[in-house]
Design a binder for these strands. Sequence first.
RNA 1: GCUGCUGUGGCGGAACAGGCAGACGCAAGGGACUUAAAAUCCCUCGGUGGAAACAUCGUGUGGGUUCGAUUCCCAUCAGCAGCACCA
Length: 802
Amino acid sequence: MEKYDHAKVESKWQKIWEENDCFKASEDTSKPKFYGLVEFPYPSGAGMHVGHIKAYSGLEVVCRKRRMEGYNVLFPIGFDAYGLPTENTAIKTGVHPRKVTDTNIEKFTNQLKKVGFSFDWSRVVDTTDEGYYKWTQWIFLKMFEHGLVFRDKTLVNYCPSCKVVLSNEDSQGGKCDICHTDIVQKTKEVWYLRITEYADKLLQGLNEVNYLPNIRLQQENWIGKSTGAFVNFKIKQCDEMLRIYTTRPDTLYGVTFMVIAPEHPIIDKYKDIIGNMEALLDYREQCAKKSEFERTQLVKDKTGVKIDGLTAVNPINGKEIPVYISDYVMMGYGTGAIMAVPAHDTRDYDFAKKFGIDIIEVIKGGDISKEAYTGDGEMVNSEMLNGITNKKDAIEKILTVLEEKGCGEKGVQYKMKDWAFNRQRYWGEPIPIVHCPKCGMVAVPYEELPLKLPPVDDFRPGTDGESPLAKIDSFVNCTCPKCGGAAKRETDTMPQWAGSSWYFLRYCDPKNDKAFASQEALKYWMPVDWYNGGMEHVTRHLIYSRFWHKFLYDIGEVPCSEPYAKRTAQGLILGPDGVKMSKSRGNVIDPNDVVDQYGADVLRVYVLFMGDYEQAAPWNENSMNGCKRFLDRVWQLQDKLVDGDEYRPQLVSAMHKTIKKVTADIESMAFNTAIAAMMTLINTIYDIGSINRAEYKTFITLLNPFAPHITEEIYEKCGFGGMLHEQKWCEYDEALCVDDTVEIAVQVNGKIKSRITIAADADQSEVISLAKQDEKTAAAIEGKSIVKEIYVKGKLVNIVVK
RNA sequence: GCUGCUGUGGCGGAACAGGCAGACGCAAGGGACUUAAAAUCCCUCGGUGGAAACAUCGUGUGGGUUCGAUUCCCAUCAGCAGCACCA
């Protein structure tokens, strides 16, 4: 047998697959469908990363298996092409982002094809394509129409030197990433999507889907639901209620002060009553100047100012308490005000200690002279609650009283914040809104979509944090669609998350220009049956896209409430040095080099064999050699081929066992053990010295999803007829997976003394008597009394003696 | 700080609804083939003692439950990831 030439064979089959549209999802909706989705790549200039290969290889194997099992499989790919790196390249090189993107997409396409992925190339989507972002804008306008879009002022990171708004990532350590000037916080009006409206739906929806437990947990944490109570504290000096949120209404008798956020509106409202307005405003300004960095560094050291002239009244006992402002209370969560219970909250405790405020114990169990006690215990100093030991009972009782008095009620809060939905950048979807001096914010009419990104020469951000689009008068100046008067266009663009929030819907019907996808296509293909991707996208991308999908479901545009029936995540590939691959470390492996040197099949087998698919594992070139050797041995079997269309007796059980193992392991993403099982089988075959046609056919069928090129070539050379990927997946007979005899361990007092071979169906007494006849076992129990005899079927015997 | 995950040979990793620890692969050592090398094939390969049979210890560490624990429970240490004053 001639040596295997991977370059020749792989390009040969890639061409055949492409020319014959082998992996095109068919329109035949009578067949059962399977929709396998992988996260589409961002086409960066660096080209593909081995991480992409691992991410795609998992579902690639599943999808190839599904086709062989008779499913109509949709396994699409596309490009999430809007984003900053492309824009930065454009700024640096002067090449238009459109051109940069096209070049990169072409590069990625070639690389993906060289690995032999069975994507449906007729359905490629590109989020920057007009035919695509038309619908991104369309969905945005639908949300606008349904009141899910709003504008609000917020503090942003602003570099006074570059005159540009920066993301948190670009302003780490409180300095501008580009010029290292100190960042200031600036108030700016930005766009928001009201995702918080869907907080509960997003949480409840997790009950309908099958996500890995840790993925589900991260989503739950991100949404961050908490149940508690709203309580109204009267302000003594005026007719005003200060409303707070707490998860511990049971500690109401321990409240000794209140804290409100520095930006709380009550301050400005009662500036005439407040005696130290100047100090308060001064503190507020200091807080605004603090960077994200400072705010998180000074957790222990609490700061704040007491408000002179405002006193709150505890609704439960009428006690008067002082009110402070402090930046440890944030305007963005709850009501921006808290009741402080220093005895039982560490932050309140730190604050009270610093400002010399009373600390009243209301729950026994800790030592409040040393630290706050946050555990459970008997209620004290709490009048009606005294003596209650169960937190739940105490909360229930106090809530009843508060509700009767009309000064509080049960409440729910979420950590999740509304989604800041704009960027002052060029390379993104223009937000299709017009600002009219008369009509306010007006939507661009649907029939005018797409609102095209205008061509420009200068992609640099405008001054004062404006988008580059603001510099183009012909784009900015327009007429109001409502009143026809002069108006100005919104110049911000959407964030990169926008395009990826619905791409899985477009794949169902990617060329449609009447709708983002037809209802028939959506009904047939949705939901995605299995979505695999990285852990880093489990919170934002997954939540955002579920939100968009749920919105579309609510307005009747998609047939199912959840987009993804199942979600898994692959682990990172680390560099050979065991740390995350990065250009700066110089430990990046280029998949191209691997394909050239070893072939795509070896690369595919290796990334799946290197370890637990969900766990991170370092790259190891030597280990890849083992995979190459394995495939070479599979190839060389052609020299050992003998006739026969049934498994031979000495291989029957091994064949059926391997089919069973590989079939099950692919479903549980245990690709490494599936490959190990095939390696074991091939070792057995080499021991026997020959393989017959039936056995070989089964073997290459099992291996085909992992190494499609070499197996397709072997299949053809053996003349089995047709193409391998069109054949049926292998079946196994459970009865034939079992051996007639098994070797079991014999233990005495839990220590292995011997091994015996028994009939697989032997019963307990038979096995134990056999075990006792064994020489070594007999010696070990000689002269001792038997206390207990245990037989675990097919595994072991344990004789307990005294 | 909180939440979650992970600790098994020289290395990547198997096994876990409690039941033979180290599958499979890599590396290493020895041998065969070769003028030689590569490739390939065969043997050894957790530690300690022993020529060997075998004994003994061994799944981060310390306890516990059990006839039996890598697997379950308690404590503890280390590494990784996410969140970060969330009231």
